[in-house]
Design a protein around this nucleic acid. Structure first.
Lengths: 135, 135, 135, 135
DNA sequence: GTGGTCTAGACCACT
DNA sequence: GTGGTCTAGACCACG
C-alpha cells in the first residue's frame, strides 16, 4: 500500500485527513473493492498516531459505506461497491463547494479558469494510481 | 442587506460560516467594494450570536483583504478591490478540492457530471445577487 | 431530571444503556423537545462514568435525530420533533423483534399472551412520565 | 434443512445470530423436537465460520434447554419439549422490549401500529415453516 | 465552560 | 490477534 502522509499540525483533525486519504486511494484505484486495510492497531503504529484515531476514521468510512468491518476478514474496501450519489450527498457537496467557489469568484477567477482548475485536480487524483496497479 | 442564515448546529464554526456568507455576498455582487458592513455589536445582535464571533469573522476577512476596518468609518468591503489568486491561495484550494472530488469520483460521478455540478453552483452564486442590486 | 440508573455490569455497553434511557425519557414525556440535557462532563460525573462514554451516547442520539448538539445552548432534545418511522427503521425493528418473538413462540406463548405483554410494556413506558410533568 | 444466512458484518456476534436462527427454525416448525442438527464441524464448514463459533451457539442453546448434545447421537432439538416461560425469561424479554418500544413511541407509532407490526412479524415467523414441513 | 480531538493504556468479547 | 468498550487526563477551538 502506498505511503499515507498525515499533517499532524493541520487544523483539520487527523481522523478526517486519514478518511480523506483512504477515499483518495479508492478514487485513484490504488485501493479497490475487496482490498484489505490494516488493523487499527498496526495502522496506528505505522502512522504514528493513536489507535482510536484510526478507529474513528474507519467508523466514518464504514458509516458512509466505503469500507466494511468484517468479523473474520478484518477491514476491507467495500466489495459490494461504493456508495452512490444520492440527493443527500449532492446537497452536501453543493454546500461545501459554495464557499470555495465564491471565494474564487471574489478573487477574480472566471468560470473557465475555475473549470480548468477542477479538471486539473480531477486528473491529478486519477494519475495518483497509474504507477502501481499492484499494492 | 440580505438576511444571513447561520446553522448553529453545524459542525463548522459560526465565525467561519459568517465569513463565508459575506464572501458569497461579495461574489454575488450583493456587496460591492466600499459597501458598509454592520458594526460588530449590531451585527452580533441581529444574528443572535456572540460579539466575539462576529469580530473573529471580521478579523479573518480583514486578514485576507476582503474588508477594511476603520475606527471611524467602521467596516467596509475593501474599496481597493479584492485579493487576487496567488500561488498560496491556489495551493490551498486544490487541497480543499481534492477530498471533495475524490469522494465524488468514488461515488461514481464522471468528469462531465462533476463539471455540470460545479457550473450549477457557480451560476447559483451569481444568481443570488440579481434580485436586489441595491441594499 | 429523573434519576437514570445504569447497570455497569450489564453485557450491553453503558453508552447504549444511556442512549436507551434517554429515549425512554422522551417516550414517557419526562423529556420534551427543547429540554436541555446535561453537559457531557457533568452528566458523566453524575452517572459515575467517563466523559467519552456519555459523549458516545450523545453522538448516537444526535445521529438519529433525537437530540441536537448546539453551539450555544449545549445539548437539547430535538426541538424540531423526533425522527420518523422510515422504511429503514422499520426493517431494523423487524429484525430485532424476530428473535425475541421466535423465542417466545418456542417457549409456548401464543399470540394473545404476546400481545398482552407488549401492551403492558407499552403502558409501563407511558406511566413512567405521569408522576412528574415538571423536571 | 433450510439455508441459514449469517451477516458477518453485523454488530451482533455470529454465534448469537446462529442461536437465533435455530430458534427461529424451531418457532416456524422447520425444526421439531427430536430433529438432528449438524455436527459442530460440518455445520461450521457449511456456514463458513469457525468451529468454536458453532460450538458456542450450541452451548447457549443447550443451556437454555432448546437442544440436547449427546456424545453418540450428536445434537438434537430437545425431544422432551421446549423450555417454558418462567419469570426470569419474562423479566428479560421486558427489558429487551423496553428500548425498542420506547423508540417506536418516540418516532410516532401509536399502540395500534405497534401491535400490527408485532402481529406481522409473528405471522412472518410462522409462515417461514409452511413451505417445507419435511427437511 | 462547552464540545472536539488526541493520547496511553487497559480489559473483554469474538473468531 | 481483532475490534469494541472504557478510563483518565490533556489540550484546543469555540462562544
Amino acid at each position: 500500500m502506498v505511503i499515507i502522509s498525515l499533517d499532524l499540525q493541520s487544523e483539520s483533525p487527523i481522523y478526517i485527513q486519514l478518511r480523506n486519504k483512504i477515499i483518495e486511494g479508492i478514487a485513484s484505484k490504488q485501493l479497490r473493492p475487496g482490498d484489505p486495510l490494516p488493523s487499527v492497531r498496526t495502522f496506528a503504529q505505522d502512522l504514528g498516531v493513536n489507535m482510536h484515531t484510526v478507529n474513528k476514521a474507519y467508523q466514518l468510512l464504514k458509516q458512509d459505506g466505503f469500507i466494511q468491518i468484517h468479523r473474520q476478514k478484518g477491514v476491507v474496501i467495500n466489495p459490494d461497491g461504493m456508495p452512490s450519489v444520492d440527493g443527500n450527498y449532492l446537497a452536501n457537496v453543493r454546500e461545501n463547494l459554495r464557499p470555495v467557489i465564491s471565494e474564487s469568484v471574489c478573487r477574480g477567477m472566471n468560470k473557465e479558469e475555475l473549470m480548468k482548475l477542477i479538471q486539473e485536480v480531477y486528473e491529478e487524483i486519477q494519475k495518483g494510481g497509474e504507477h502501481d496497479d499492484l499494492h
